[in-house]
């Protein structure tokens, strides 16, 4: 929607002049900020080539590439696990049986409310350390991300199934399908189509959260970065390069999500699960708030 139509009229001559002044001031402020940053970097010798050299040295580039692959692998495994987890508990929450609905509800709400990092620390210290360690730090990250994103996706699945028009289920029952058939053959296939963009943007969340593995020294981009700045003392440069990699990968994922939204879903607005614990949010404004 074009917000400019809502909030203000077409500017008159005075307003045009005022906007020009704001434009110039903003540009000056931005240029000043960039200059100040560059000067500051230069004064502290941070622009020296030696500090940037690792990022054009083949061995280090390879190490960063390896870290990126680890990060992507962790995010990918977590999303696959989260899809299964979300499907099971999302359908569980919609069950007609109370003994299924309640435990699913408890599991979903619990894992949505617990910080991913708390989960990782727990898994690592309970099962990843000592003689009887059963989990590597890699798997601690994957499991923590799986249950958190799974709980979020459970809500997405539920919202997706509820978004399928009621007549679909009614028609399926009318032609004599059983409950499981209605869910598997009629509702879920249509719901998945609606949910695809949400699922892809959840991938962005999972990818960003793999960075938390830093705290329990799991492999991945942040771990490689830590090793590099441990060796060269180039914290600023590592932070810039690693962040740039994350941003680029995330932007690619977002672009895919937008494309899928346009190609497959059409002009319908994207699904958004209701915020935690809010059940009567009928404002329709949850989209765009973004998941974190």
């Amino acid at each position: 929607m074009n917000t400019s139509n809502i909030l203000f009229d077409a500017p008159g001559p005075k307003a045009v002049v005022r906007h020009r002044v704001y434009t110039v001031l903003t540009i000056l402020a931005l240029v000043g900020f960039v200059l100040a940053v560059l000067l500051r970097l230069d004064r502290n010798g941070q622009l020296a080539y030696a500090l940037w050299e690792p990022f054009v040295t083949p061995e280090y580039v390879q190490a960063i590439w390896g870290g990126l692959l680890d990060t992507l692998k962790m995010a990918f495994s977590a999303i696959i696990g989260a899809l299964v987890f979300g499907l099971v508990f999302g359908v569980g929450k919609m069950s007609e049986h109370r003994w299924l609905r309640w435990p699913s509800w408890v599991v979903v709400e619990f894992f949505r409310a617990v910080p991913v990092l708390l989960m990782m620390i727990f898994l690592y210290f309970a099962y990843g350390l000592g003689k009887d360690a059963v989990l590597s730090s890699y798997w601690c990250v994957v499991i923590a991300l799986t249950v958190y994103n799974g709980a979020v996706l459970a809500e997405v699945f539920r919202a997706g199934v509820l978004a399928v028009p009621r007549g679909q289920a009614e028609a399926a029952y009318a032609v004599g399908m059983r409950k499981a058939q209605v869910m598997n053959l009629v509702l879920l296939p249509q719901a998945v189509k609606i949910m695809l963009p949400s699922i892809i943007s959840q991938c962005v969340v999972a990818l960003k959260d793999t960075a938390l593995g830093y705290y329990i020294s799991s492999p991945g981009l942040t771990f490689v970065g830590k090793q590099i700045y441990g060796e060269f003392q180039n914290q600023v440069q590592v932070a810039i390069v690693i962040t740039a990699i994350y941003v680029v990968v995330n932007l690619i994922l977002s672009a895919i999500a937008t494309w899928v939204q346009k190609r497959i879903v059409g002009e319908k607005k994207a699904l958004a699960p209701t915020p935690f614990g809010i059940t009567d949010a009928d404002t329709g404004a949850t989209q765009g708030g973004g998941r974190i």
Binding site: Y214, T222, I242, V247
Partner: peptide, 30 residues
């Protein structure tokens, strides 16, 4: 972001896009 000045809109949008796609841990590292 919703105001009438194009440069401000663009600057705010760039900041939001950059930071939203950065892991919080990297913001902390910065």
């Amino acid at each position: 972001r919703v105001g009438p000045v194009a440069v401000m809109r663009r600057a705010a949008a760039t900041y939001v896009t950059l930071v939203r796609n950065t892991p919080l841990l990297m913001v902390f590292i910065f």
